[in-house]
Amino acid sequence: MTTTNTMTTPTRTHADVREYYGDVLQSSADLKTGACCPAEAMPFALRRMLGDIHPEILARFYGCGSPLPPALEGRTVLDLGCGTGRDAYLLSRLVGPTGRVIGVDMTPEQLTVARRHRDWHAERYGFAASNVEFHEGLIEDLGAIGITDASIDVVVSNCVLNLAPDKARVFAEVFRVLKPGGELYFADVFADRRIPDALRRDPVLLGECLGGALYTEDFRRLMQQVGCADARTVSRAPIPLLDPAIEAAIGFVNFESITVRAFKLALEDRCEDFGQIATYRGTIPDAPHAFVLDDHHTFETGRPLRVCGNTFDMLAATRFGAHFELHGDKARHFGLFDCAPASPTSVPKAAGACC
């Protein structure tokens, strides 16, 4: 897939978001809802790294989850809407000195904070030089800042995609720059219905990550458009509306923070059974006992697990392949794979296939 490198024209939405995150918000204490605050406990392995993040960066963090997947050493990771760089600097440590982290944001005030601490973090981590770079630009047009086709191993984003006015363009760009077998791993705000236009344009609701929240069914359709037939939900949690005025305006919508992973793979739109088996070796750092692929696939170390064809490919044809013993092929088909989420209501239809 290729796209032109013509710069996407900034919109009124871009201007409102830039003003909200550049001028209105001076710290996370200024937020009016729980939409842009972590909705789940950060894994201990990541939480203990926060002590090595500069305090100024921590004070201006507006994410909604912990969308930092494992097994990143030596990889090239792109952080969409990196803000002041908290996740980018966590990723810096996770990819190590041989890896590379690229942060993209459209708010100059936040990038100024992120950039002035590059050397501080490199020294803190014991790196000879910083492995992080920051670019000002729109996530709808990654080509404009020089990110080429199939050049990225993993794309992450933390409560930012809801702010983009052209989400279809964002997802198209993500799958353009991902390498085959690469992964999109992101946390964002999802809604159980489409937001009325008047509320979508409200600067406060937009800035609080509510006005532009993705309707789960529209997300599923966007994934289909970019060729991703099976995006998986990793975790989810309800979002509280803490401000009475915001509750009065948009309280009829149910919001959730959902962490999603999607691979650049040729997957089927249903879970098919080919008699395949996967066994986790226990070799991913900080996951010696089990690996969680999604909210209904936990692989215990050493325990064989029957998997559908899509799940098999998500392991075999990605960076996770070295960490699994994989048996079987697709020479013989046994029909639909008999698997489902742990609870009928635990995974939104946005998660794609049933497996």
Rank of each mutant, 00 (worst) to 15 (best):
N158D: 14
Y125D: 09
A172I: 08
R124D: 06
P67R: 05
A15R: 13
R116A: 04
P240G: 02
C209N: 08
D30V: 07
Y21P: 04
S66T: 11
T84C: 12
L142E: 12
R221A: 14
C64A: 15
R221L: 14
A39D: 01
A144M: 10
E19M: 10
D313L: 12
M42D: 06
I239L: 04
L184Q: 00
A198T: 00
W120F: 13
G51F: 01
G181H: 04
G34R: 12
V260G: 05
T13H: 13
G81R: 04
H121Q: 09
R60P: 01
N254Q: 15
T8Q: 12
N254H: 15
G143N: 13
M42S: 12
G321I: 00
T8G: 04
R220Q: 14
M314Y: 02
T13R: 15
K167F: 10
L90V: 02
A262R: 03
G182E: 05
F252M: 13
Y21G: 07
L205Q: 06
G181L: 04
V307A: 01
P288A: 03
L50S: 02
L46H: 11
D119P: 01
C355H: 08
G51C: 02
Y185M: 01
H296M: 10
A198Y: 00
A168M: 08
V189Q: 08
T4V: 04
T9V: 15
G146N: 02
E256G: 02
E123V: 07
P10C: 03
D202R: 11
P348K: 00
L90C: 06
Y215M: 08
I152F: 06
C159W: 04
P67K: 07
D202G: 08
Q225V: 07
A88N: 05
D16T: 04
F291W: 10
V189T: 15
C36V: 00
F219D: 11
C36P: 00
F44I: 06
